[in-house]
Design a protein around this nucleic acid. Structure first.
Length: 416
RNA sequence: GCGGGCGUAGCUCAGCCCGGUGAGAGCACCAGGUUGUGGCCCUGGGGGUCGUGGGUUCAAAUCCCAUCGCCCGCCCCA
């Protein structure tokens, strides 16, 4: 391990990629607010057992992907592998469910999983998500999905599919699970080794196995839609109708199951073929039992999370934020140039000067490289009369201007 | 955690198979051509522990082993 190297799977965000990150973050904020969602921030570190109770102990996230460690007092802590558990913990710790029966919340931050890095899969990654606590009704499922779709629309991400399914109530899920186990046992030897293991621990996950051997077996497996009771069916149909009415196209996928144990009823995933093996860049669903499983009141909830790095992979346009507007070049007069630059900044123009005492030619080259529209040239000849030269690069036009009127002249040049 | 590919200048890569000619190209960067002015062109220049460590050899970027990192698939999931 070289000392000058970021930890495996963890990445720097260099200046040239930051405009994109900022654009994402701004869209998260404005869209959340548009729907009345409030931001919540929770610690990056939690007690490790928090995740055992929420994500489920059959999930690999908990069994082998968590960064855990003991602090100096011997407490087992964990870097958060996802953010929902921490949000629920915070809500309960501060008694927020006693103050209001409905909470619309959003979060944004880093999460950590100890996995083998791949395209779109990192050990430190970022999630943006929203959670709606307090409504058992399909309107809230729909609202949350519409928030997600609005975010994508504002970011110009278009080539994706929204996959939708239902897991039904806990009872439905239980009965379906039994039927699945029975079926997969009967064809056990045809399954991949990984899926044979999953059969005991988490049989639903076999459905979205990508292993070639599993494909034909999965295609013949029982379908959850045949197990839905009236309540589950009605909830599912209602969500579908509303999304259709809202002009949000969905792909119904009976084999979509989500990794985390706490989902009931609606589950959904945003997928894109551009991402390779990690083709899902966002997902969520309803988790009515989660709050209660923490020892809290019975509060229904729906939510989703986007993987920020995966969204970045889908964003083709690079927004250019706050480009420099004026370059103050000088003929061996760095101090005067700094004063002129200060004057322009005071007038509100984003302005830079040369800091390397380079030739005029080099300064103009730099201005051109920065795509600065206007160069102000400070040179002895004009300076003696209290003037400078204003040059408009693209139009190759330049004129002399008294120092006192510089801001006006720059304004005029910039408006061309 | 499992299987495979790859690490040579800031970037993209050639050289590696058949060890030995001064470690190269394009782009980028710097300077000059234009002693008050950019983009194009010309000329020159800076920059490399050939991922790291060990081994084989008279000699290793080149062969062998280990290790770290990246990429692809499985797993997992955002």
């Amino acid at each position: 391990m070289s000392g000058l190297q970021a930890v495996r799977g963890m990445h720097d965000v260099l200046p040239e990629e930051l405009p994109r990150w900022r654009q994402l973050e701004e869209v998260f904020r404005t869209v959340s607010a548009l729907f009345g969602y409030e931001e919540i921030r929770t610690p990056v570190v939690e007690y490790a057992q928090l995740y055992l109770r929420s994500v489920g102990d059959t999930s690999d996230i908990v069994t082998k992907e968590m960064y855990t460690f003991a602090d100096r007092g011997g407490e087992q802590l964990a870097l958060r592998p996802e953010l929902t558990a921490g949000v629920v913990r915070a809500l309960l710790q501060h008694g927020l469910f006693q103050r209001r029966s409905l909470w619309r919340l959003w979060y944004y931050g880093a999460a950590f999983r100890y996995e083998r890095p791949q395209k779109g899969r990192y050990r430190q990654f970022h999630q943006y998500g929203v959670e709606c606590f307090g409504s058992p009704f399909p309107e809230s499922d729909v609202e949350v999905i519409v928030v997600a779709a609005t975010v994508l629309q504002r970011l110009g991400i278009q080539r994706y599919e929204l996959h939708l399914n239902t897991l039904g109530t806990l009872q439905v899920r239980q009965r379906y699970r039994e039927a699945l186990v029975e079926y997969f046992r009967s064809v056990r030897s045809a399954l991949s080794p990984e899926s044979q293991q999953r059969l005991e621990r988490n049989p639903l996950r076999i459905l979205d196995s990508k292993h070639p051997a599993d494909q034909p077996v999965v295609a013949q497996a029982p379908i959850i839609w045949d197990f839905l009771d009236a309540e589950s069916r009605e909830h599912f149909d209602s969500v579908r109708r509303a999304l259709e009415a809202g002009g949000i196209p969905v792909v119904l996928n009976p084999r979509l199951v989500r990794g985390l144990d706490y989902y009931t009823h609606t589950v959904f995933e945003f997928v894109s073929p551009q991402l390779g093996a990690q083709n899902a860049f966002g997902g969520g669903g309803r988790y009515d039992g989660l709050v209660e499983s923490f020892g809290g009141p019975s509060v229904p909830a729906v939510g989703f999370a986007f993987g920020v790095e995966r969204m970045l992979l889908l964003m083709t346009e690079m927004p250019c934020e706050e480009p420099v507007q004026v370059y103050v070049a000088s003929q061996s007069m760095p101090e005067e140039a700094m004063r002129v630059a200060a004057q322009l900044r005071a007038a509100g123009y984003r302005t830079v000067t040369d800091l390397q005492r380079r030739s005029l030619k080099a300064q103009f080259r730099e201005a051109d490289r920065l795509r600065v529209p206007v160069v102000v040239l400070v040179a002895e000849q004009e300076w003696e009369r209290g003037a400078v030269v204003v040059r408009h690069l693209q139009e190759q036009a330049q004129w002399e201007c008294p120092l006192a009127e510089l801001a006006d002249h720059v304004a005029r040049a910039l408006s061309r």
